[in-house]
Design a protein around this nucleic acid. Structure first.
Lengths: 241, 241
DNA sequence: CCATATTGTCGCACTGTGAGACAATAATAA
DNA sequence: TTATTATTGTCTCACAGTGCGACAATATGG
């Protein structure tokens, strides 16, 4: 294996992605583990010399999740001079059998543009990249220790997600096409991190005009069967990518 | 004069700043004009090799406005591969008597991190930088044609400012310490671009608990003198810089 | 047939807001 | 001095939205 060359990528510039999914009753994030080091990090990558920044992020997500056309949104660029640790990066490279000179571009400072993505957790086929052992889901409140400033990146992603929950049709991208009101409420509660009142939530959602009610579901549970809903105008990609 | 060296700055990375001020009844933006070219652009700059990204932006703003401790907020990173025009950059450099080789770092692609700033328009002492003829205020609805993708940057800055108007105490930074309710309403209207109802606005502002009423002002105008107000907890720098 | 858990809906009180009305008042004109 | 004028501060009314609880409807299991 060869280390990526500075002839192919823009030096000093990287991206990191916070990929949200919803499973069971929890909001989850994709985390990778680097070979041999026991270190965890957000999935990220570099930008090709003549590649659009947004395209680079979509490329990286497609390689790891096999998903195209993902809801993706840039939220902050992390540019502290000391956010990067060359010694840790070197350890990751040597653990993969790559030895690079001390002045190699991968051991220098990086500014990282951070994105968050929302995906239907059931549609993903996870695929580790070359440098990592595994890629898997972690509860947002049960993350392993992360490299560099990745914990701060996750916090800020969550913060942005919460702020956008009221204005953007986010849940379309976290739920299957048909869902119950209960499921929708669980997604809201998982994102906001607080319980919501059932009847008020239901009333507000119905009044929004965004939901279309479908036939009843045969739950097989010992209670009244809930309606199924779908979003009337499911938005896959937001206006502002 | 010497062209800035790639030994001092991170290549391929720049920042641009949208500096808002409020004068009269209009929202205004700082625009620079490059020497000899008749080209207008947002004030921007480069990031030192070991300089924090945020510090680089503050440094550039201080050089041009003589203001320290500015309300500053990053809002988007523009990363299209074709957003930059090497021929226009070369023309700017040659107009300043700088000739650089074709493979110079300044003629290569740039990714730009964009910030907006809010300042009290009356406190500024404008100071053109080395490459530019002038720096001055323009109405947001009367901008000259701008270089590169700077028009898009301005639009997105305005969009972000509007979204943050409800959640953040923005107007502290656009008004003097003491102001009338009428002035505050004018700022809101200038940012939102739409008229607001006077009594509802007044009621809402008073109910927010953010304003402290002071003594009456001697306006010299032929009508009832308005109260003066100040913000109870003026925030200079936001939590998220 | 009854108990149980959950769903769909309604009512009530409270808050916030758009819209208009009206008195108070500082300067100016008569 | 008094009337006029423009603007300010406040009030009222109607209406929409929300927190919160209550209650009937219903699918399953005993």
């Amino acid at each position: 294996m060869q280390a990526p060359s500075s002839a192919d990528f823009l030096p000093h510039l990287a991206y990191d992605s916070v990929v949200f999914g919803f499973a069971g009753e929890k909001l989850k994030i994709l985390i990778i583990e680097y070979h041999e080091t026991g270190w965890f990090a957000l999935p990220g990558g570099f930008v090709g010399r003549s590649e659009h920044l947004n395209d680079a992020v979509r490329r990286g997500l497609k390689e790891r999740t096999a998903l195209d056309n993902i809801y993706l949104r840039q939220f902050y660029t992390f540019g502290r001079a000391d956010r990067f640790s060359p010694t840790q990066m070197e350890a990751i490279l040597t653990a993969n059998g790559l030895s690079v000179p001390q002045d190699h571009w991968l051991l220098d400072r990086f500014v990282s543009v951070a994105y968050y993505a929302l995906i239907d957790h059931s549609k993903v086929e996870l695929q580790p990249d070359a440098l990592s052992d595994s890629i898997s889901w972690y509860d947002v409140d049960g993350l392993p220790p992360l490299l560099f400033d990745h914990v701060e990146i996750v916090f800020r992603a969550l913060d942005t997600l919460r702020q956008n929950l009221a204005t953007t049709l986010i849940c379309t991208n976290l739920l299957p096409a048909l869902f119950t009101m209960k499921q929708l409420q669980l997604v809201y509660e998982a994102i906001l991190g607080e319980p919501l009142h059932r009847s008020s939530f239901q009333r507000k959602m119905l009044a929004s005009g965004l939901l279309e009610r479908r036939e009843k579901q045969m739950t097989g549970a010992a209670h009244k069967a809930p309606f199924l809903y779908r979003f009337v105008n499911p938005v896959v990609s937001p206006a502002r990518s």
